[in-house]
Design a protein around this nucleic acid. Sequence first.
DNA 1: TGAGCATGCACAATCGGTTGCGCACCGATG
DNA 2: CATCGGTGCGCAACCGATTGTGCATGCTCA
Lengths: 337, 337
Amino acid sequence: MVRLRDVAARAGVSLSVASRALTKDAAARISDETRARVEQAAAELNYVPDHRARALRLSRSGAIALVVPEVNNALFAAVHAGVHAVCTPRQISVLLGQIDPSDLGQGAALSSLIGNGRVDGVVLQRSEQFSDDDVSEVIDVDVPVILFNSSLPTHIGSVALDDRAAVQVAVEHLTSLGHRDVAYIGGPARHDAAFRRRAAFDQLAATGGLRTLPEWDVPGGWDAPAGHAAMTALLQASTRPTAVLVANINAAVGVLAAAAAQGVTVPRDLSVIAVHDTWIGAYTCPALTTVLLPMEEAGVRAATMLLDHLEGGALEDVVVAAPAPALVLRDSTAPPR
Amino acid sequence: MVRLRDVAARAGVSLSVASRALTKDAAARISDETRARVEQAAAELNYVPDHRARALRLSRSGAIALVVPEVNNALFAAVHAGVHAVCTPRQISVLLGQIDPSDLGQGAALSSLIGNGRVDGVVLQRSEQFSDDDVSEVIDVDVPVILFNSSLPTHIGSVALDDRAAVQVAVEHLTSLGHRDVAYIGGPARHDAAFRRRAAFDQLAATGGLRTLPEWDVPGGWDAPAGHAAMTALLQASTRPTAVLVANINAAVGVLAAAAAQGVTVPRDLSVIAVHDTWIGAYTCPALTTVLLPMEEAGVRAATMLLDHLEGGALEDVVVAAPAPALVLRDSTAPPR
DNA sequence: TGAGCATGCACAATCGGTTGCGCACCGATG
DNA sequence: CATCGGTGCGCAACCGATTGTGCATGCTCA
């Protein structure tokens, strides 16, 4: 490994001059000629500063952690893409973290993963399985944490999606098709994005004159098995809705499977629309009508805020409203019979 | 932040004794009483060693990189799970990397991401878009690289799946159902796992007396759009096969969609079986019959080999044969009409 | 009683960069 | 001619941990 010392020797200068020249320290008084000589020496030797040494000296590791409940999720990919896009040009690495619920309780769940200066900050997507207290425990580290699509009392620094707008797009699509009997299959009870969507639906249903029966109120979830179970339960209702709004596309995949299993033809017998859009939406049968949320942009916002904060910027709670949630019209919705 | 110095002071010993006591250096001559005192002090102060300093001193960063072509893939999740399972108990962090083809050529694609001692090693899943030369360029770093499910001439250190066995399971399932006219939709031409599967199919088809028409030989790929395109092309054939073996489940999702779009009913008109199994297989319509490969175990093997190698172990090229590829019987295969 | 040895601990170098400060040299000014 | 300010650069102290080596002390044995 070629060290700064080698560069300095080749350029015929001291370590300090070499360092200042290479870090482009404008305040340093170094002649242009010397600067050039150092840079050339560095180039010739193909010098790359040692991250470890720099990290130690600067108390900066040059990496952030992206912690998500499950990697196995197309939505995660979009968030990661956004974070990645911000970090790469800034020469920041992204550490991937996953917190298993089983890790909780023994204190320092995140801490063992990212503690001790391994990363400079964290973007944390809250798992549905974690309570407020769990999250509080997890984020008890000495680096800034941005909560992604999840909030926490007293915590500042979060990026959320415009859940209400997303639900509104879906509801308006259904009502414009003529639906009045709309069931809602939400996310996990504890998750606050799920809560926001639920609240938005309830309110929009009320003001929009939708009919929502108590028996349509079935427990939901974010994944396909949860959607399957919810739909199976929903189809037991004595009166069936003409449309179902599913809070998550992965759950909607399960919803479609359950409908097919029960002999319900979508969209003839039932319209299905889901929040979030991933590649799978185009390949279900029928292809899913969805609401596309700006996940990648949200990832960009989260990473940007975090990195800027490390440079002295302020933390805030933002809602990513642009681009606005957009209807992706496919084949799972139609006017009621 | 509490430093080793603080622990030493509290325990009333020097830095060196504190260090040796906490690292449980058996060779060091330290009285049991002193050891206990140091450990208690560390516990009271809630001391955690600084990763940066330790990394500098030991020339070890305590992290490895997991580089994959695309995070947006359920298969990746399984690999990650395996790697994660190995690394977590060893207190190793996993850095997530993604190499865009656009990064190539400017030298140091990986190097900027993981170079300079940021990680101690790399598990690299080769992208289909990279040539041998591209990969060679990418892995030109000064840390060990384990190639995952991809090989490279002259490179030692890889973990591959038993592609032949997987294809064999699929072929035997189809033949046992009575199929003779079987088309194969493979992966990208350059990818060597794709090559192995293709070769296995060709050989098994020949020995098994399968009929394979040249017009069934359509370009494939790993993802749903590729599968969709391949199936659409295949259905143009003057003679149609009675079954299709798809080299990847994601592609098979596209295959099913294309079949449905063309009015082909699976499995009545056509059986479809895919290599790899993910959650989506249970939710397509019809649910996909697949061959489950030990992806997580492969991730475990890769990470284990890498970490052991850092301790002096040897690198080798292994094929993960156990658990053996297993048929996951669902609804997309049936006897030919 | 003194040599010899094991024990228990501390000193100081080291990893590779960054940075506050001081030193030497220059031309300019009074 | 002495002083002053600016310029260009190097010395050395860090960051926090690990580790080779050396120095006491206390014991045993001749």
